[in-house]
């Protein structure tokens, strides 16, 4: 097996070419790319592949779930790689270096935990002030500030056509109610209205 880049090119070259030529990447194509990358032996190869796939998926705004999955995997791989580099770099260093680093890590962790609520990241032992039953689900990350917090590992899929049309109607009413006082709202309406064009893309639905 050669360099990471060339291997990745070999695995994904045809698919990438078709992506760029057709301007489209379907779900099956995404999964095939991921599988190919996952089966590659070397970490460098995989990282390179994931980087390419991530760029392609980001470029084409396809399947957020696949994008998130690839991002998550490449992130954990990156961490493992960096930890190994650190371990090698620190091997044989005096004890006070380890102590200093440990103190920095512990201090940073304490700062995040203590100051988190102030910055809206949530924190230890802080109770939410609202009914969190709606959001307290496995796919929603967040503690005290879950109502405003980041949503992670979200499975996105297209809403039903009825829901999509309802949202389109509401979006049109919303835009129309601005009565032109908001800058360039009408061009935005013309550009964003997908349902009337019969296209299936546009709205993404949070399951």
């Amino acid at each position: 097996m050669g360099s990471g880049k060339s291997d990745c090119d070999a695995v994904t070259g045809i698919e990438l070419a078709s992506v760029f030529l057709d301007g489209e990447l379907d779900e099956e194509g995404c999964e095939r790319l991921l599988t190919s990358a996952h089966q590659s032996a070397k970490l460098g190869v995989r990282l390179s592949c994931y980087g390419l796939i991530r760029e392609v998926i980001r470029e084409h705004d396809w399947r957020q779930s696949v994008y998130l999955a690839s991002q998550r995997v490449s992130w954990t791989m990156g961490i493992r790689s960096r930890l190994g580099t650190c371990r090698r770099a620190l091997a044989g260093r005096p004890v006070w270096v380890w102590g200093l680093l440990g103190g920095l890590v512990a201090g940073s962790l304490a700062a995040v935990l203590l100051l988190g609520p102030v910055r809206g990241f949530g924190g230890l032992g802080v109770a939410p002030t609202h009914d969190r039953s709606v959001y307290n689900r496995p796919w929603v990350w967040g503690r005290a500030s879950s109502q405003y917090g980041q949503v992670r590992s979200v499975a996105w899929n297209a809403p039903s056509s009825a829901v999509r049309q309802q949202l389109e109607v509401y979006w049109m009413i919303h835009a129309a109610s601005l009565s032109g006082s908001q800058m360039m709202v009408y061009p935005r309406m013309a550009a964003h209205n997908y349902t009337v064009a019969g296209r299936k893309q546009g709205w993404r639905h949070h399951r």
């Binding site: 809403p159 829901v163 309802q166 949202l167 979006w171 964003h192 709205w203 639905h205 949070h206």
Partner: peptide, 12 residues
């Protein structure tokens, strides 16, 4: 059917 949860279309 009606929307329950989050949906987005671009920045909307």
């Amino acid at each position: 059917a009606t929307l329950v949860g989050m949906a987005r279309m671009g920045p909307v």
